[in-house]
Simulated assay, not measured.
Amino acid sequence: MLVWERPEPPDRPTPAPLSRDRIVGAAIRLADEDGLEAVSLRKVAAVLGVGPMRLYGYLATKEELLDLMVDAVHAEIRPSGDGWREVLRSLADATRRAAHRHEWFADLIGGRPHLGPHTLAGGEAVAAGLDGVGLDLAVPAIAAVNAYVVGAVRREITERRAERTTGMDKEQWQAAYGPYLMRTFATGRYPALAAVVRDGPHPDPDEAFRTGLDFLLDGIEARTPR
């Protein structure tokens, strides 16, 4: 029986009452502050002021805890809108905002399907919003948007982590490596790439995300029945 289906243990009169919601909340706070590597059953139990063995009445493994954490974040993702395009844009924007609030979330999405109640509720909202376009279009459209969001968000989070690790923001990185690129481009071996770097647009992350999403949605729209 999956963790979503198992009832919680009955309440016990203890100095530190427990519930899955309290356990998940403590784990999310640890992950938000110090990343997924900071999350263990022992550390979560310490935050809650209980022994680690008490947590096993509520979940069996750390993997179940991670599933519960992901589903809790999916409660923050509520796609909405009039028409399939607005629904898919809402899905993309809400997922990105959630990953920016919880960077560790980007490490756990995009793999096997998540089946918690909040995740399923979000999936229901998206599927209902695309009901009129037909399953042959809706299914690959949802998959394409999810794949785009996962890739874009992971890149953004990786860049944010790199800034913290190296202590260099984007401008500092460009100042450090720009002279090398200019010397390399001056050799004439990479003319097309040099033109892109020198003359191409360099949007900020928000604009880049919106533009890429518009390209994708335009492609989906081109396949919708007229």
Rank of each mutant, 00 (worst) to 15 (best):
Gly212Ala: 01
Ala175Ile: 03
Ala45Leu: 06
Ala106Val: 06
Ile142Leu: 01
Val196Leu: 15
Asp32Ala: 13
Ala222Leu: 12
Pro52Cys: 07
Arg198Asn: 11
Asp93Gly: 10
Gly110Pro: 01
Pro113Val: 00
Leu130Asn: 01
Ala72Asn: 03
Ala162Tyr: 06
Val139Met: 10
Arg223Gly: 15
Leu55Val: 03
Arg54Asn: 12
Ala60Lys: 10
Leu181Tyr: 13
Glu163Pro: 02
Val149Gln: 09
Arg189Asp: 09
Ala192Met: 10
Pro15Gln: 04
Ala143Lys: 01
Phe215Tyr: 04
Arg20His: 04
Glu221Tyr: 03
Val133Met: 12
Arg97Ile: 07
Glu37Thr: 05
Ala147Met: 10
Leu65Asp: 09
Ala222Phe: 08
Glu86Gln: 08
Gly35Thr: 02
Asp21Met: 05
Gly219Trp: 02
Thr165Gln: 09
Val145Met: 09
Ile220Phe: 08
Lys62Tyr: 07
Gly151Pro: 12
Arg112Thr: 11
Gly57Cys: 08
Arg89Tyr: 09
Leu66Thr: 04
Ala60Ile: 04
Val133Asp: 03
Tyr190Asn: 11
Val150Thr: 14
Ser80Asp: 13
Val73Glu: 00
Arg154Gly: 04
Pro205Gln: 06
Glu33Cys: 08
Glu207Trp: 12
Gly49Asp: 13
Ala31Trp: 05
Tyr148Asp: 07
Pro140Glu: 05
Leu2Trp: 08
Val87Ala: 05
Ile23Arg: 03
Val70Ser: 02
Arg96Gln: 13
Asp93Pro: 04
Pro15Glu: 05
Thr158Lys: 12
Asp67Glu: 13
Gly200Pro: 13
Tyr58Phe: 14
Arg89Cys: 05
Leu108Cys: 01
Pro225Val: 00
Leu65Met: 13
Leu217Met: 12
Ile220Trp: 11
Pro15Phe: 01
Ala106Phe: 05
Ala45Met: 06
Arg160Glu: 06
Arg96Leu: 15
Leu41Met: 15
Gly57Ser: 09
Gly212Pro: 03
Pro7Tyr: 00
Asp21Glu: 14
Arg154Ala: 04
Gly116Pro: 12
Leu36Met: 13
Leu130Thr: 02
Val196Lys: 11
Leu55Glu: 03
Ala147Ser: 14
Gln172Lys: 11
Ala31Ser: 09
Pro203Thr: 03
Val39Pro: 09
Leu120Val: 15
Ala222Met: 12
Gly122Met: 07
Val39Tyr: 01
Gly122Ser: 14
Glu124Lys: 11
Ile142Pro: 03
Asp82Ala: 09
Ala143Val: 02
Val150Ala: 08
Gly51Asn: 14
Glu33Met: 07
Glu124Gly: 14
Gly151Trp: 02
Asp32Met: 07
Gly129Lys: 00
Leu108Thr: 00
